[in-house]
Simulated assay, not measured.
Amino acid sequence: MRSFSSAVKFFGLLIPIIAAPAFASGLISGQELDTQIRQKLETIGLSGTPAVNPKRQFAACSSDLEISPLFGNWKTVSVRCPDEGGWQIAVRTRIEAAEPAAGNKAAKPGQKSRKVGLANPPRGGATQDEAKAMLHVAALSRPFKRDEVITPDDIIMISVKKANASGMFPQGDDLIGRKVKKSISAYRPVYARQLFMPWMITAGQEVQIEVEIAGIAVSVLGIAEENGQYLDWINVRNARSGKRVNAQVAGPKKLTISTKKY
C-alpha cells in the first residue's frame, strides 16, 4: 500500500483527470495494442511479436494511435495517443522479417534503389589477406562543424585497416542524429570522441512520467533534472507540483516510475 500511496502523492490530482475519462470511454488493452502494432508492421512488409503485456490497460484515446519507429528502425516503436494530455510508450517489436539494409532508401517508381557507396573501395587486385585486414567504417560526405547534427544523407562508408579502426563506427546508422563536438573533415573516419554523448533525455527537457497504478497507465508532465541514457535512473520533478522523484528512462521524452522503489 505504501508504494501505491507514494505514487498517488506524486501524481496528485492527475489520476482523476486521466483515469476518470478512461473508465467513462473504456480502456485500451495490451492485446489491442499488440494487434495495432502488428497491423502497422504488416503495412511495411514486416512481422513481429510486440513485447506488450496483453493484460495491461491504457487510458482510452479518442484519436487513432500513432505508431512510428524509434532509433532509426522498427525494432522498437513509439505508440502515442495524440489526445491532449495523452500517453506514449516504447515497445520492442521483435521483428522477424529483415528490414531494408542500412543506408538504402526506398526507390521511387521507375527508379533504382540507391545504396551508400564506398568512398575508397578495395582495389580489384587486392589479395584475400589484404581484404581481410580491411574494415568498412562510417565517414561523412561533407565537412562538419561543431553542433551540426548528422543525417542519413551525410553518411558514407570508407575502407580502413582493422588495426587502426579503434573508436570508429562500423555501422553507419550509429551516427544518425548525433551532434558533432569537434570539426570533422569529409571522407575521413568519424571517431566517437568527435561526437557529443547521445543522451536520450537531457537536463531541463520536458518529459512524460508514467506509472502503472491498479492496472491503469497514468502519466504526467515532468522536467528532467539530469541527463540520462536508455534505462538510466535519473531525478525528475512533477511540472505541476514540483515534487521530485527518481524515474527510469524508457524512451525519448519518456520515463517510468517503479512503485517498488517507494
Rank of each mutant, 00 (worst) to 15 (best):
I95F: 14
V77A: 05
P21D: 12
D64A: 14
R94P: 00
I155H: 01
A102I: 11
V8R: 15
K260P: 00
A20L: 14
E212F: 04
S6E: 13
P109Y: 09
A217I: 01
A51W: 00
G30S: 07
T35C: 04
R114P: 00
K243S: 11
S183W: 09
Q171H: 11
G124E: 12
Q36C: 03
V160Y: 01
Q111S: 08
C61S: 13
P143N: 14
F23S: 09
V79K: 03
W87M: 01
P143I: 10
S47T: 15
A97H: 14
A101P: 05
Y262D: 13
P21M: 06
S219W: 08
T35N: 15
A214C: 00
V137Y: 01
V180M: 08
W87R: 05
S3L: 07
L41I: 07
V236E: 05
P100E: 09
G177T: 09
K105Y: 10
V160D: 00
A20Y: 10
K179C: 04
A98K: 11
W87P: 04
L41M: 08
S3M: 08
Q205W: 05
P54F: 05
W233P: 00
K115H: 08
V91L: 05
A51Q: 14
G167H: 02
R188M: 12
D173P: 00
T35H: 12
N235C: 08
N227E: 06
G72Y: 04
R237S: 11
D154K: 06
D83H: 10
P152H: 09
G172E: 04
E212L: 08
A90F: 04
G85S: 03
I234N: 05
D147G: 01
K108E: 09
I216E: 09
F58L: 13
K260I: 03
V249P: 00
I223F: 00
Q57N: 07
P121M: 06
L65T: 10
P54D: 13
G215W: 08
K253R: 14
L70C: 07
L195E: 06
Y191N: 12
Q205E: 13
K9T: 15
A90P: 05
I28A: 02
G177L: 12
S3G: 13
K75G: 08
Q248R: 15
S159T: 07
T151H: 07
K132S: 04
S63E: 13
P54A: 14
D64G: 03
G124H: 06
V207T: 02
A250E: 02
D174E: 12
F144H: 04
V8N: 08
S219L: 01
E225N: 03
E66Y: 06
S6H: 14
K40G: 00
S183V: 08
I89T: 14
V207S: 05
T76P: 00
S185W: 01
E32Q: 15
M168Q: 11
R178G: 05
R92V: 05
D83P: 01
A250I: 03
